[in-house]
Amino acid sequence: MSNPSDSTPIAGFSSSGDQVIVPLTPTQLAIRRFRKHRMANIGLFILGFILVYISFGSLLSRGYCAPLQTDLTGEAYANCNDTKLKLQPPSKDHIFGTDVIGRDIFARTIYGGQISVLIGISAAIFEVVLGMLIGAIAAYYGGWIDNLLMRFTEAMLNIPSLFLLIIGARFFGGGLPTINFFGRELTGSVIIIIVIIGLTSWMYLARIVRANILSLRERDYVSASRALGASDARIIFSHLLPNTIAPLVVSATLGVASAIISEAYVSFLGLGVQGSTATWGNMLDGAYQYLEKAPWLWFFPGTLILLIVLGINFVGDGLRDALDPYSTRHV
């Protein structure tokens, strides 16, 4: 990616000489830097495409379901299986082919995409909330609380996350009732996967938040509100956390990407979302047994995962440059 901080004009000053200087707010500046970030724009385009695909694509999910002898639309069509049509290569009727029990892969990538994105975003939110809480509590209270929480954070960081995911998936695995989410039936395992991914990925965030707050804590305005008798919670939530927002936004964005990949890993190892609910990850489950016979089984969901993760990474990189031009970059 091009490094926009090198080329952006110095904040707030127009380069064209004697015109009235209108100082830009930090937010406007950030937006401007973001829009100049080429990779970020490509990323936005990819994400836009995928959003259109998984939302409006559902209008194209329709067809005749032979075993039920009716025409179906939407998710019902995506779940319609016709074992007579199993493992069909891509064709006019099934442009991405069919899977091992004759479900339409195109329709399943659409509805699976919705779940994968839902998992990605929810897990990232969960991760951010958890990381923020732990980081903020550790930094604000300091002392033994800080010590305990940070030792715990370090310990979690030192366990490779894939192992944590595998173990976590077993820890919470098993039967949970089906729940209704915006009119869609979701198996309980969707929630489980969200929780597991969140629980195994909050550590970096907690550290960032803690470090930021530690440096902010001694600033005058915090001391002032403390002197005015503001409660701990109020200081944490209205002063400290908002000022750590930039790194949080970046981490949360990248968190969505890693959550989607994590979901795919867990599913790949057979521990992912269960039942008839499709996700890009569980569409890949077992598909590699058909590496040779039916490459369309793994190619389409795999490529979609690659695209969305790529898009999010581009955007995340743009956000990082935009929100915090002086941050040292870690890839």
């Binding site: 319609c80 299986n81 091992v100 029990i101 479900r103 039967g175 198996t187 008839s276």
Partner: peptide, 28 residues
């Protein structure tokens, strides 16, 4: 096991024709 997951999905659809609902669960 993948085959069993597939059978579950097929059976769920078959049962729906007679009005029996299925809650599918898989355990390691």
């Amino acid at each position: 096991r993948e085959l069993r997951k597939n059978v579950q999905a097929v059976v769920q659809q078959q049962w729906s024709l007679v009005g029996i609902g299925a809650q599918l669960e898989n355990y390691s």
